[in-house]
Amino acid sequence: MTGYIISRLFRAVVTMLLTVSMVFLFIRFSGDPAAALVPPDAPQEVIDQYAEAMGLDKPLWQQYSGYVGGLLQGNFGFSIHTGIAVEEVFLDRLPHTLQLGITALFLAIAIGIPIGAFAAVQRGSVLDRFLMGVSVLAFAMPNFLFGLILILVAALSFKTFLGGENAHVIWPALTLGLASMGSFARFTRSSVLETINAPYVRAAEARGIPFHIRLSHHVVPNAAIPMVTLIGLSLGSLVAGSVVTEQVFAWPGVGQLLVRSVATRDLAQVQFIVLVVAFTMVMANLVVDMLYLVIDPRIRVK
C-alpha cells in the first residue's frame, strides 16, 4: 500500500515536470517570442534588445533552469500587455469558471447517473432506448450548439439575453453539463449492467437478499469503481473544459481569458493557464488513485 502511494506521488511529480518542460520547449520553438512582440517591420536591433531584456540570448539550458527556478519560487511572470502578475489575472477569473464548472458537473452527475442507472434496471424497454438515444445526442452534439439555441430562443421569445457577466449561471452550466450528462448516463448504464448480472449478485438473490439491498450493497459499490475514474477526469477538466461555452455566453472566466491571451500573444499568461490546467488534471488523477484505496480493497494489498 505504501508502495502504491509512493509510486502514484512519484508519477504525479514526473508528469508535472514533463508538462513544464514541454510547455517551455513548445513556446521556444513556436517562433521567436521577442519578434512576436514587436511590429513586423521592426529592425533587428530592436528585436535583439527585447531578446536581451527577456533573457532570450542566454543558452537554452540557462533559460530553462531560470524558468523552472522561477516557477518553484512562485514567480510565474507578468502579462506583456498590462504588466500585472499572470496569477493575479487568473485568480480574478477563477471564481467565475469554478462556479460554472461545478454547477455543470453537479447537473451532469445529478441527472446523468440516475438516468443511466434507471436505464440499466429497465434494460431493453422503450424508456431505456429513449434515454440512451437522448444521451448519445447530448454528447454527440457540439456543446456550443445547444448554447446558441438557448440564447436564440430566449432572445426571440422572451426578449432576454442569457449571456454576459450578470446572466444566471444555469444557462451556460446546462450547455456545458449536457455533454457530460450524456456520457455519465451511458457510462453508468454499462457499469451497472455489468455488475447487475455478476454472479455475486445472482448468488445474493439466491440467498434471499431483497432487490433494493442487492442494488445498494452489491451493485452500487462495484459499479462505482469505474464511475470514480470518470468523475475524476471531469474534475480535472473543470478549469479548461469551458473555453467554448464561456466564449458563447461571454462568461468572464478562465476560458475566455485563455482565448483572449492566445489572440493577443500574451505568452506568459497562456503558459500559466496551460500549467494550471495540467496541474488540476494531475491532482484530480492523484485524488482518484487515492480514492481507489478506499473503495477497492483489491488495490490495498498490492
Binding site: Y200, R202, P210, H218, I225, D296
Partner: peptide, 26 residues
C-alpha cells in the same frame, strides 16, 4: 445453492463477514 465459480459469487469489495451477516440481517 452453491455455484461453480465460488470466487465470482462473493462481492469483491466487501468482507466475507459482512456478506454473511447481511444474509442473517435480511
Amino acid at each position: 445453492m452453491i455455484f461453480q465459480d465460488a470466487a465470482a459469487c462473493l462481492n469483491p469489495v466487501r468482507t466475507i463477514g459482512s456478506q454473511l451477516s447481511e444474509i442473517l440481517a435480511v
